[in-house]
């Protein structure tokens, strides 16, 4: 559209457009128009509204009246001065880093393992991954909550039966460090299928001849992975890291459900914090502010990955 507007206006617009169309200059814009229209049509107003809300005092009364009170950057000042917010950001970052690192590491190991096992076993593992991926998150978190239950949880029973200690009436959530550990486990478990299947499929595309040649040259398994496989999988690792970071930073359901919809402040991650401010204490302005800050933090954190990812895409 920008191209069309800048064009010299010497010939009838229709024939001009047609020429452009045929030469392919407008064609790509036509191709992306529907998706831009849908994404912008649905999300532009809500996103703008989110930013707008973050600049207002907006409680339930304002919501009912459809009228907020402008406070400029007041919400941002309040949130940035809140020590809880700093804690929450730090916790979210640490949580995300742990989850992403573990997810990528374990998924890569499982994907490599899939190359080595016999076919029947790989079908079994693949099916397991598919089942995990296909089960709705709101269901799996219920199951996990119940498995880690204090009295009736199968995990406590199992660990005790395996003589790993006395876990009868062990409470996994009274100590936040341990509780967050359990949450990492639940999140990573849910993230492994997608990443593993993606990495595995990528591994299948590494030419066997290349690995053979490397082995002939005396490269061990680690070196073959490090110098042959990993570089070829770089684009996959980039996009997977990028997406995992985005998803894990926004983690909500796992924490919300495992802690009975009432997580204490020790368990607040940024998404929980934003939701609490909005729907818990009806401070929609503050909730929106936290959400905006969350996106900003995420942009900073993923800047490198997004740039690399898009660059890789542009090369292609």
């Amino acid at each position: 559209m920008a191209t069309a507007a800048a064009a010299p206006d010497l010939e009838p617009a229709s024939s001009f457009l047609r020429r452009r169309w045929l030469s392919g200059q407008l064609f790509p814009y036509a191709l992306i128009t529907p998706s831009v229209a849908v994404i912008a049509g649905v999300l532009a107003f809500p996103l703008g509204m989110l930013v707008w809300l973050s600049l207002q005092h907006y409680g339930l009364r304002e919501l009912i009246a459809h009228q907020g009170e402008w406070v400029g950057l007041g919400n941002y000042q309040a949130i940035l001065a809140d020590p809880l917010f700093r804690q929450v950001i730090f916790r979210s970052l640490a949580f995300t880093f742990t989850c992403v690192a573990l997810t990528i590491l374990l998924s890569t190991l499982i994907a490599l393992l899939l190359l080595k096992v016999r076919r029947a076993v790989s079908v079994v593992v693949m099916s397991a991954l598919v089942f995990v991926w296909a089960t709705p998150v709101i269901v799996t978190v219920d199951i996990w909550q119940w498995m880690f239950d204090y009295e009736f949880g199968v995990i406590n029973y199992l660990l005790t039966q395996l003589h790993l200690g006395n876990f009868i009436h062990h409470n996994w959530f009274d100590n936040p460090v341990q509780g967050l550990g359990v949450l990492v486990l639940v999140v990573v478990w849910g993230a492994i299928p997608f990443v593993t299947i993606t990495v595995f499929a990528g591994l299948l595309q590494v030419p066997g001849e290349l690995l053979d040649a490397a082995e002939v040259d005396g490269a061990g398994p680690w070196q073959r992975f490090r110098f042959v496989t990993a570089p070829m999988l770089k684009p996959i690792f980039l996009i997977v890291t990028c997406l995992s970071t985005i998803w894990d930073f926004g983690v909500f359901n796992q924490i919300y459900v495992l802690l009975n919809q009432r997580p204490s402040a020790d368990y607040y991650t940024i998404a929980i914090y934003s939701y609490r401010e909005s729907f818990g204490v009806s401070q929609y302005g503050l909730g929106a502010t936290i959400a905006v800050l969350m996106v900003l933090v995420l942009i900073v954190v993923t800047l490198f990955y997004v740039r690399e990812t898009v660059r890789q895409a542009e090369i292609a």
């Binding site: 999300l43 107003f45 985005i246 998404a271 959400a291 996106v295 995420l298």
Partner: peptide, 12 residues
Amino acid sequence: VQMVPLNALIIP
């Protein structure tokens, strides 16, 4: 666009 938390967009 994938970075925006859906929960924050409920009201808008």
